[in-house]
Every structure is written in structure tokens, then in C-alpha cells.
């Protein structure tokens, strides 16, 4: 009798297993769960008041505009004659992308523990929904502001849009892998939450958002290029400025780094998923 296929397998696989479900069915369950989590997350975070979910991208836009104004007015030393508006936009948008993802995933499981009673909802789904939201918000903010600034002629259109997009995805990959790893670890130790804030704050000036690698002295370049995210931002900038700026990056460092970090993060996710105790 135990081998019977569940009558309504789409909604209720047996506990602890997912047998009796094809890959297609599993994918459709997961899509539905992530869709439900996304809507729930948007309602919880932004509510139905004033501009509602538009805060998703308005908030990062305000941040980026503020930083752009600040850097323009202080003539921030970025070590080249590049237009500062485009420099600030590419730099700060990237920071928002990789920094907010871990910020949203750390402690996310703790806040959503009751959801673990629904066996279709997995730990990874909670992170996925939050990462999709962060990616959406940062991407809409980045592209929206780019279009606006280009239309207002404060900025030239990017030299190579595809390259910008590819760089953006590499930074997203870095952010997601870091976020899932730190999110899972934060469930095991609260130290992660405590240390992430100073760490991300210190990483910001080192991340390449506020300088071009080429403008640094050689010994500083050697140090800074150990930080993987620098390569991503340099790549985005190359897409934006083309030959007007010399970008220094090595995808042969960033991509393997992302790969290894993804594997480590998924192991941590699996470890936590197997041990999670709902409330």
C-alpha cells in the first residue's frame, strides 16, 4: 500500500521525500511556491500604501541619485576624466546589487520559520524569492536611471550593452552565491549578522565602486584585484565606457570564484535545510 501513488500528488508528496513526482511537477510546484512567496514578500515589505511595490526600485534609485550628486559635487577622485555621472551610476548600482542580496538573506529563514510547516516550501525558495526581488529592484533602478540620464544627455549611452548586461549578471551571480551562503550560515550563528555589517561597509570602498583599478598605484592594484567583485565592476565599466577607460579584470578569476562560492553556499544551504526546526 505504501507504494501507491498519492492521489493528488501535485499538492502533497509524502513527508521527507519527493518520490511520486516528476521533474516537471516539481518545477511547477516550485514556481508556484516562489510566486506566492514573492507576492507575500512584496506586500509585507511595501504594503498597499502610497506607491506600494514601486519602492522596490524607487528606493535604490534615490540611493543612487544621492550618491551621484554627492560624488559630482565633491568631484570625487576617481582618477580619470570619465564623466562622473556614469561612473557613479555604474559603481553604486553594482554595490546595491551585491550588498543588498546578502543583507536580505541573512536572518531570512529565522523570520520565516513558520513557513517550514508547509512541506512544499523549502529553505531555498525563501532565499530565491528574496534574491529575485533584490535583482528586480536593482536592475529596474539601474536601467531606469540609465535611460533617464541618457535621455537628459548627462551621460553617453553604453558602448556595449551586452557586455554591461553580462557584467551585471556576473555581479548578480556573486551576490546570490554570497547571499545564500551567508543566509544559511546566519541560521547557525548570529555572528554572521553581526560581522556582515562592518564587513560590507568596509568592502564598499574596496569594491571598485569608487575608483578605477587603472588609476591606482601598482601595489594597490595587486591587492585590490584579489577582491572578486572588483573584476565584475571593471567589466561593467568596460561595457559602459569602451575604450575611453582601460578596465583591468580577469574573468578567469571571477568566474571560478563564483563557481566555488556557489558550491560551498549550496552545501551550507543543504546542511541547514536538513536541520531546520520550525518554531
Amino acid at each position: 500500500m505504501a507504494s501507491q501513488v498519492p492521489q493528488n500528488a501535485q499538492d502533497s508528496a509524502p513527508p521527507n521525500t519527493s518520490y511520486g513526482r516528476s521533474l516537471g511537477e516539481s518545477l511547477s510546484v516550485q514556481r508556484r511556491v516562489i510566486d506566492a512567496l514573492l507576492r507575500r514578500e512584496m506586500l509585507t515589505r511595501y504594503g498597499r500604501h502610497n506607491i506600494g511595490f514601486m519602492w522596490l526600485f524607487v528606493e535604490p534609485m534615490i540611493f543612487t541619485i544621492g550618491v551621484t550628486i554627492l560624488w559630482t559635487s565633491t568631484k570625487s577622485i576617481h582618477g580619470s576624466d570619465l564623466p562622473i555621472v556614469a561612473f557613479a551610476l555604474t559603481g553604486y548600482s553594482s554595490v546595491l546589487l551585491w550588498r543588498n542580496m546578502p543583507g536580505r538573506c541573512i536572518g531570512a529563514l529565522q523570520a520565516n520559520l513558520p513557513l517550514m510547516y508547509h512541506r512544499n516550501i523549502k529553505v531555498g525558495d525563501i532565499y530565491t524569492a528574496r534574491l529575485l526581488l533584490e535583482f528586480g529592484g536593482a536592475t529596474i533602478s539601474f536601467t531606469g536611471l540609465s535611460v533617464l540620464l541618457i535621455a537628459a544627455e548627462w551621460m553617453e549611452p553604453p558602448d556595449d550593452v551586452l557586455k554591461v548586461f553580462a557584467g551585471w549578471l556576473l555581479i548578480t551571480w556573486f551576490g546570490c552565491a554570497l547571499a545564500i551562503g551567508l543566509g544559511a550560515l546566519s541560521h547557525m550563528s548570529e555572528l554572521v549578522d553581526k560581522l556582515w555589517h562592518p564587513f560590507s561597509y568596509l568592502l564598499f570602498p574596496l569594491s571598485g565602486a569608487a575608483f578605477l583599478v587603472v588609476a591606482l598605484p601598482q601595489f594597490a592594484q595587486d591587492i585590490v584585484l584579489w577582491i572578486p567583485i572588483v573584476h565584475g565592476i571593471e567589466f561593467v565599466r568596460e561595457g559602459f565606457f569602451g575604450s575611453r577607460a582601460r578596465a583591468i579584470y580577469d574573468l578567469g578569476y571571477l568566474i571560478p570564484f563564483n563557481l566555488v562560492m556557489s558550491v560551498v553556499s549550496l552545501i551550507a544551504l543543504r546542511y541547514v535545510s536538513r536541520r531546520v526546526v520550525p518554531e
Partner: peptide, 14 residues
């Protein structure tokens, strides 16, 4: 309910 995993043992159900 499947919310948590047992340390050992099985739950089979249709």
C-alpha cells in the same frame, strides 16, 4: 507533517 526530518526511521504514506 514533514516539517522536520527524523534522525532515523521512516515515514511512508500514500
Amino acid at each position: 507533517s514533514g516539517a522536520e526530518r527524523p534522525t532515523a526511521g521512516t515515514i511512508e504514506t500514500s
